[in-house]
């Protein structure tokens, strides 16, 4: 499974994270190749969100390495990591509720002032999420849960990231909306954006990902081809409810 490092867009090696005395991640390693959808699945508290937060710089690691396009991310502040081409769509979507939909999207492209670039990015976002276009002037706090998820993803895409990290995009959404969102994730990936997907809804995540890692209390306990993991009896009983 291991390949030479320059084949990887993202490479996480022996990453450990502590919150005070509590160890949230015990030296996990994984990688993501350009163009892939990789999913981290696992129960609540397994360390999935912590992994994403550490990659995006919100949480400091205690040891280990994170490399993005062969660049070591250690010590780079979160706002600069965003500028390198990593967009993190946080758990709970976290729209700026006091801002309009337009302003949320505009801030997604905070690092650029180029009007043409911003317009192009916004046009692309509207292709995936036409509903946002109708709501541009509305305050983001008034959107429904599904629309907020679309806004959060659209905002993440505004920076035209190479890697889009999605934390629980299915959370709190109806099954119909979940399928809709996952279809869009697949489409975004097909247009060339690599995706690191964190999900509790393992079934959906495994259905669109190429590869998957199973996290359990801060360690990776299983990994492999998403289709194969879906058939794995351990995964089936623990995460797919079969």
């Amino acid at each position: 499974m291991n390949q030479t490092s320059f084949n990887n867009l993202l490479e996480v090696k022996d990453l450990s994270v502590h919150y005070g005395a509590i160890c949230a991640l015990h030296g996990i390693s994984f990688e993501l190749k350009p163009g892939e959808i990789v999913t981290l699945i696992g129960a609540n508290g397994a360390g999935k969100s912590t992994t994403l937060k550490t990659i995006s710089g919100l949480v400091k690691s205690s040891s280990g390495k994170i490399k993005f396009q062969d660049q070591d991310l250690n010590g780079i502040p979160a706002h600069k990591i965003a500028g390198l081409g990593i967009s993190h769509v946080p758990e709970g979507r976290k729209p700026f509720s006091n801002l309009t939909v337009y302003e949320n999207l505009r801030l997604g492209a905070y690092n650029t002032n180029n009007k043409a670039e911003i317009d192009a990015a916004m046009t692309r976002v509207f292709e995936s999420f036409p509903r946002l276009k109708e709501r541009l002037a509305q305050s983001a706090g008034t959107l429904s849960g599904g629309e907020q998820q679309m806004l959060a993803m659209g905002r993440g895409l505004m920076a035209r990231p190479k890697l889009l990290m999605l934390d629980e995009p299915s959370m709190g959404l109806s099954p119909i909306l979940v399928s809709e969102i996952f279809a869009i994730i697949k489409e975004i990936n097909e247009q060339g954006t690599s995706i690191l997907l964190v999900e509790q809804n393992a079934n959906m995540a495994l259905s669109i990902a190429q590869r998957a890692y199973v996290l359990e209390t801060g360690s990776i306990v299983l990994s492999g081809n998403a289709q194969e993991l879906r058939e794995d009896p351990k995964v089936k009983s623990a995460y797919l409810g079969e």
């Binding site: 995006s56 710089g57 919100l58 502040p77 979160a78 706002h79 600069k80 965003a82 500028g83 967009s87 993190h88 946080p90 976290k94 700026f96 509720s97 006091n98 801002l99 302003e103 505009r106 801030l107 997604g108 905070y110 690092n111 002032n113 905002r155 920076a159």
Partner: peptide, 24 residues
């Protein structure tokens, strides 16, 4: 202005603001 938007965003949610590339 963009900086004004960023100010409002930071006042609402500092963590997420950083994810946009905003230097708090």
């Amino acid at each position: 202005t963009k900086t004004g938007m960023a100010m409002r965003a930071v006042s609402f949610d500092k963590q997420t603001a950083q994810l946009m590339g905003i230097d708090i």
